Simulated assay, not measured.
Amino acid sequence: MKLYYSPGACSLSPHIVLREAGLAFELVLAPTKTHKLPDGTDYYGINPLGYVPLLELDDGTRLREGPAIVQYIADQVPTRNLAPANGTLPRYRLQEWLTFIGTEVHKSFSPLFFPAMPEEGKQIYRDRIAGRLQWVDGQLEGKQYLMGDAFSVADAYLFVVTNWAKPMNLDLSGYKHLLAWRERMAARPAVQEAMKAEGLLK
């Protein structure tokens, strides 16, 4: 398998999950600014949408969109318990979390990365994210992870998007359960390995 990624982008989520799964994979740098791969290939020829992540299977099949990719990876190694079994209510709860993170948190961060977005506009999105993370903070009370006591692929996704808070001037200090959860996540070996591989940790 090949994972096309850009350091610190949302592709870090499936990168973490691949390491949690213990699967063999190749990392391929796909810079979001140049869209040129290390060998000079135009990334748009691989993913016409131009963004990461993209997972290429050994038979050449390509899978886009982080929430789909992390579930695919989890289902390759069911004994790792990275996602509940398909068709069960807990699996739909996982999809509920992945959808929430993707549409309510991840996409609310997107305008903060645009230099042309006026500061007043950015503050509207910061306030929106703060409200969503306040709710997440409440959901994490008394839990080790989003789904309870066990790590799931949703934790990897939320960890990555909340990594963007500090560089985007979003203060998380008021969310004690979220911060405790982030510490647990940051201590996971797979998280540290993925971040080191992307040059995000020394």
Rank of each mutant, 00 (worst) to 15 (best):
L55P: 04
L57E: 14
R64F: 08
L63I: 15
P78T: 00
A74W: 06
L63G: 10
P78D: 03
Q71V: 14
A74G: 08
P67R: 00
V77S: 15
R80W: 03
I69S: 04
R62G: 01
D75I: 09
T61C: 07
L82W: 13
P53I: 09
Q76M: 13
L57M: 14
G66V: 06
R80E: 12
A74Y: 04
L55H: 11
E56T: 06
G66K: 06
L63R: 10
V70A: 07
D58V: 10
T61N: 05
I73W: 00
G66A: 11
D59L: 07
G60T: 06
G60R: 02
T61P: 00
Y72G: 11
A74P: 05
Q76W: 13
Q76L: 15
V77W: 12
P78H: 10
L82A: 06
A68T: 11
P78I: 12
Q71Y: 03
N81R: 15
P67H: 09
E65L: 02
N81I: 00
T61S: 11
I73P: 05
L63E: 02
D58R: 00
L57R: 15
L54W: 01
E65H: 09
A68L: 06
Y72C: 13
I73R: 10
E65N: 07
D59W: 05
R64L: 11
D75P: 05
R80L: 09
P67F: 07
L63K: 05
I69A: 03
R62M: 02
Q76V: 08
D75S: 15
I73E: 07
G66C: 12
Y72V: 09
Q71D: 03
P78W: 09
I73S: 04
G60Q: 07
V77L: 15
P67S: 13
L57S: 09
Q76H: 10
D58W: 01
N81A: 13
I69G: 03
T79E: 15
D58H: 09
R64T: 13
P78N: 14
Q71F: 01
E65M: 01
I69C: 01
A68E: 04
G60S: 10
V77E: 15
